[in-house]
Computed example of a mutant assay.
Amino acid sequence: MLLIKELPTSESLKKFAGHYPEADIVAIWEFVNILRAASDLSDALDKMLQQHGLLQGRWWVLVLLLREDNLSSSPSELAEKAGVTKATMTGFIDGLESEGLVTRLTDRKDRRKLKIKLTPAGRKKLDEVMPVYYTNVAALMSTLSLQQRQDVVRYMQTLGANADIIK
């Protein structure tokens, strides 16, 4: 993910509008501010997770497995739920497996079928990370009132539901 660090100035937006008069520079400024906030949040989450030897992709795999009743899922289901390719998921699983946080299990009836299972070490890792995550998220979200939080979520859901407008 590209982290946006420098937002356009009003001068650069005016220059942009001079080249592209059809551009809605207010909408562009608002959009890049939303992207910047998302970048900052993603970066902050990665920094917190790095303190525990994880990054978002691998952490999400562990969280997705924890959500399952039997703590296991197929690699393709994990990839779909995480919104990544099967190849990317394989990389996440390889790293987690090498650290003993997940294990690959073959179906006894059909050896072509594979399940990824959260190990006790993976559960221990989550037990270490999740309280820190929850505390940090609560602290961050407390900077907004309940109404502001609900508004932000509603607005972001609306934008997300219409993201296919960007082609």
Rank of each mutant, 00 (worst) to 15 (best):
Q157P: 00
L71D: 03
Y134L: 14
R58C: 04
V84S: 04
T119V: 15
R154D: 09
E11F: 13
W59H: 02
A163T: 11
Q51S: 07
Q50A: 14
G18S: 15
T158H: 10
H19Y: 12
V137W: 06
M130C: 02
S76E: 15
A163R: 10
A121H: 06
L54A: 11
K167M: 05
T103A: 14
K125Q: 13
G53F: 07
R112W: 06
A139D: 11
A138R: 03
S73C: 02
K14W: 02
H19T: 08
A37C: 02
G160C: 09
G91W: 02
S72T: 08
I28Y: 09
N70G: 01
L66K: 08
G160T: 07
A161F: 08
K125W: 02
L55P: 06
K124V: 02
L62F: 00
I28V: 14
A37T: 06
A38M: 12
R123K: 14
R112Y: 07
S76N: 13
V132I: 10
A139M: 09
H19M: 13
L126V: 04
S72R: 13
V137E: 02
G18L: 11
V129N: 06
K124R: 11
S39F: 08
L13C: 07
L13N: 06
R108A: 15
E80A: 11
A121L: 15
L7K: 03
L2E: 14
R67A: 10
D151M: 08
S73R: 04
T9M: 00
D40R: 12
A121M: 10
E68N: 12
S12A: 10
V63P: 05
P21H: 09
K86R: 13
K14Q: 10
V152E: 04
I28N: 03
Q51W: 05
T106S: 14
K15T: 11
T119A: 10
D40V: 10
G95S: 10
I4T: 13
G122Y: 07
A87T: 15
A17K: 15
A139T: 08
S73Y: 06
Q148A: 11
R154C: 01
G53K: 04
L96A: 05
A23M: 07
A17W: 00
D110W: 12
K86A: 09
S145V: 00
G57E: 09
